[in-house]
Write a protein that binds this DNA or RNA. Structure first.
Length: 438
DNA sequence: GGACTGCTATGGTCGTTAAT
DNA sequence: ATTAACGACCATAGCAGTCC
């Protein structure tokens, strides 16, 4: 605005009017009123230090600013009111009196009222039945109205459909219904502040039962490091007992290298937190640093087992098997083929055309397993794929004519990838079985 | 004339609301 | 969440009127 200055940097309420050098403690708003000569909480600025024109100009400006702000506020309240008024649920069909039989209060119907009050005890049996049916119709219509609002919210904010398939959602709906009209929704600050804290506390108290189980039969500690989307290295610690798995802590560890000592410290601290007597074993993957930590722990706490994660072990086995020359060539060829097919939109479309929309790549939980899943998938769709590579639809694709495309194509035909897969899957299973159980 | 009361204008504070 | 803006409300000064 250019007509005021701050007197005290630490107190934004202390401002000085440069039209007359007056100081005031009422903040900018008060000053605007002062200059605009509006409001009853303030004197009117006389503009001693400036010309009449400048004072008038400033007056105009301040008046405008005050009016504008006021208008905006009013507009907003009006808009919110309108928004609420747009919501019509209870007045569907115009047969309101049916919903409010015997009720003089502004209708505040719970689900039970709906059925009890609606049935007039003095009515004959057939009459009450008719009314019940009428109510049922209305009931349905009202429900549909509400559902439409919920659906709009879900669609507009990309909330996954299964988000409503749980008890929390049902309870939420019931709670809103019981509260009645005019409910004030939580703000996002409520959600991330107090409400979050409360829920956290509640969840924690729910875990108390788990604690008891831990005390009784002991628990395992699981830890693993992973990188999030921002490439931060995060280490987390979970426990597992007969009652289930619960999260203990996570820590960003991007700044330190994950040496055996670091991991040992982390695990040891977790053991200390939970209680050394309740921890039976520690589970990690097979990385060498973890194995180092295993040794350290064994020295300090010989009674706690350190176990390798079975999934990771199998993973390593799969990797090892995949590296055997007998399988490596086949896997590489299949990989090249799928990468090629998935690398171009047209080839991918062509494949889906032949497989009727089915995929040959299944993003596996783990890298090495997905190799085999893909092989299996190729084997499963061999008829369709075979058809595809000799079909004119495939041949006519520009991408297939490229160097890479030709190579993949030839590989596929010449090496008889499909038969190879068959053999490999069989051998693979045998090897896995013998490693695991043999 | 001094004490008191009541009123108003203005200043100051602080809780609420909006914006970032 | 933090901060800015707002506005309601309280405090106080100053004034006028009234009473003793």
């Amino acid at each position: 605005m250019g007509v005021w200055v701050l007197v005290d940097i630490n107190n934004k309420d202390k401002v000085k009017c440069i039209l007359c050098d007056k100081q005031m403690c009422g903040g900018v708003y008060r000053l605007k009123q002062y200059i605009a000569q509006e409001g009853k909480n303030v004197k009117k600025c006389q503009g001693m230090k400036t010309t009449k024109e400048k004072l008038l100009e400033a007056q105009e400006k301040c008046k405008k600013a005050l009016d504008e702000a006021k208008r905006k506020r009013e507009e907003k309240t009006v808009r919110e009111l309108e928004l609420r008024e747009e919501v019509h649920v209870s007045r569907v069909g115009g047969s309101e009196e049916v919903t409010c039989v015997g009720s003089l209060e502004p209708h505040k119907l719970g689900p039970v009222d709906k059925w009890t009050k609606a049935i007039d005890p003095t009515a004959t049996k057939s009459e009450s039945l008719t009314q019940q049916r009428l109510n049922k119709e209305l009931w349905k219509e009202r429900l549909h109205e509400v559902h439409k609002y919920i659906a709009r919210w879900v669609f507009n904010h990309a909330i996954s459909f299964n988000a409503c398939d749980n008890d929390e959602f049902k309870q939420m709906c019931e709670a809103i219904g019981q509260f009645g009209p005019g409910i004030e929704p939580p703000t996002m600050f409520d959600l991330r502040g107090g409400l979050l804290e409360e829920e956290y506390a509640r969840t924690k108290s729910l875990l108390q039962e788990c604690e008891a189980e831990k005390m009784k039969n002991g628990c395992s500690i699981m830890t693993d490091a992973w990188s999030d989307k921002k490439r931060r290295s995060i280490m987390n610690v979970c426990t597992n007992c007969a009652d289930g798995t619960s999260f203990i802590s996570s820590k960003e560890m991007s700044d330190v290298s994950h040496t055996s000592e670091v991991i040992f410290e982390l695990v040891d601290k977790a053991i200390e937190d939970i209680g050394p007597d309740d921890v039976v074993q520690v589970v990690t993957d097979n990385a060498s640093n973890n194995m180092g930590a295993k040794k350290l722990l064994h020295v300090k706490r010989p009674h706690i087992f350190w176990t390798s994660c079975a999934a990771h072990t199998i993973n390593l086995m799969l990797q090892g098997i995949g590296n055997m020359p007998r399988f490596k060539k086949m896997i590489d060829q299949a990989k090249a083929f799928t990468i090629f097919v998935y690398g171009h939109t047209r080839t991918l479309e062509c494949m889906r055309y032949f497989t009727e929309g089915k995929e040959i790549v299944r993003p596996g939980v783990t890298r090495f397993a997905s190799n085999y899943l893909t092989l299996d998938s190729i084997q499963e769709k061999k008829d369709q794929l075979r058809k595809m590579v000799v079909h004119s639809r495939w041949d006519s694709l520009k991408d297939v004519k490229s160097k890479k495309g030709k190579k993949c194509h030839n590989n596929y035909i010449e090496s008889n990838l499909l038969e190879g897969c068959k053999v490999d899957i069989g051998s693979f299973c045998a090897i896995v079985q013998s490693s695991l159980f043999g």
